[in-house]
Computed example of a mutant assay.
Amino acid sequence: MTVIVAVAVLVGVLALATVIGLLLRARTGRAVPQTGSALNTPASLNSSVADIAPPTAFGTRATLVQFSTPTCARCPATARQLDSLAAQHAGVERLEIDLAEHPHLATRFNVLQTPTVLLVDGARAVRTRFGGPPRPPELAAALDTVLTGPQESR
């Protein structure tokens, strides 16, 4: 292999890696509304999170469920962001699930990266999903939609 070919291959690999990185960055933290089986889980699993924690861990109006791991570098900042947002709204709580302690939940909820955040309504149904740290404007808009939407009777 000549030097010119080697440099061309190196430049091609770097260009491909840059394009893939930019695409992943553009998708990270975006709000993805969840409807029905949109969690990409098997049909036998629904989009309810009611069984992953005691009922007292959930907010009466909404819950921000954060899936994280001990080695996640972005999880502490995400936790602070979610805590701050939850503190601004009555009936909203943050629930953190450590996937190292509950690895079956990573499969159940198709968690491919940490943090992954699920916005859950008062009926414990997943309304919005964020892969990566949520973008603040999108998170606030999704939460406002849940908080101002029609309340289900319980």
Results as ranks from 00 to 15, higher is better:
residue 73 A to C: 10
residue 74 R to D: 13
residue 13 V to C: 12
residue 27 R to P: 06
residue 32 V to D: 08
residue 84 S to W: 01
residue 29 G to W: 01
residue 127 R to L: 02
residue 1 M to V: 13
residue 127 R to P: 00
residue 42 P to G: 08
residue 77 A to F: 00
residue 103 P to K: 03
residue 91 G to D: 13
residue 45 L to V: 13
residue 137 P to L: 09
residue 22 L to P: 00
residue 63 T to Y: 07
residue 6 A to S: 12
residue 51 D to G: 12
residue 133 P to T: 15
residue 105 L to A: 03
residue 136 P to N: 02
residue 5 V to Q: 10
residue 3 V to D: 13
residue 13 V to G: 09
residue 109 F to A: 03
residue 103 P to L: 03
residue 21 G to R: 13
residue 3 V to K: 10
residue 29 G to H: 02
residue 39 L to P: 04
residue 28 T to R: 14
residue 149 G to V: 14
residue 44 S to N: 12
residue 97 I to F: 11
residue 82 L to I: 10
residue 82 L to C: 14
residue 112 L to T: 14
residue 12 G to S: 06
residue 33 P to D: 03
residue 134 P to R: 03
residue 111 V to C: 09
residue 152 E to I: 12
residue 125 A to V: 09
residue 38 A to T: 00
residue 66 Q to W: 07
residue 41 T to I: 05
residue 110 N to G: 03
residue 124 R to P: 07
residue 37 S to L: 11
residue 130 F to M: 07
residue 81 Q to S: 07
residue 59 G to Q: 03
residue 18 T to E: 12
residue 7 V to L: 13
residue 48 S to E: 04
residue 27 R to E: 15
residue 52 I to P: 00
residue 146 V to H: 01
residue 52 I to S: 03
residue 75 C to Q: 02
residue 14 L to I: 04
residue 120 V to I: 14
residue 99 L to W: 01
residue 7 V to F: 08
residue 119 L to Q: 01
residue 1 M to W: 12
residue 35 T to C: 07
residue 124 R to H: 14
residue 33 P to N: 02
residue 99 L to P: 02
residue 118 L to W: 02
residue 52 I to D: 01
residue 119 L to A: 01
residue 56 T to S: 15
residue 78 T to K: 09
residue 47 S to G: 15
residue 69 T to P: 00
residue 17 A to S: 11
residue 128 T to P: 04
residue 131 G to P: 04
residue 9 V to D: 13
residue 128 T to W: 03
residue 108 R to E: 05
residue 135 R to A: 10
residue 27 R to T: 15
residue 110 N to V: 03
residue 132 G to H: 06
residue 94 R to T: 15
residue 49 V to W: 00
residue 69 T to F: 03
residue 11 V to H: 07
residue 49 V to G: 01
residue 73 A to W: 08
residue 2 T to L: 10
residue 116 T to Y: 05
residue 134 P to D: 06
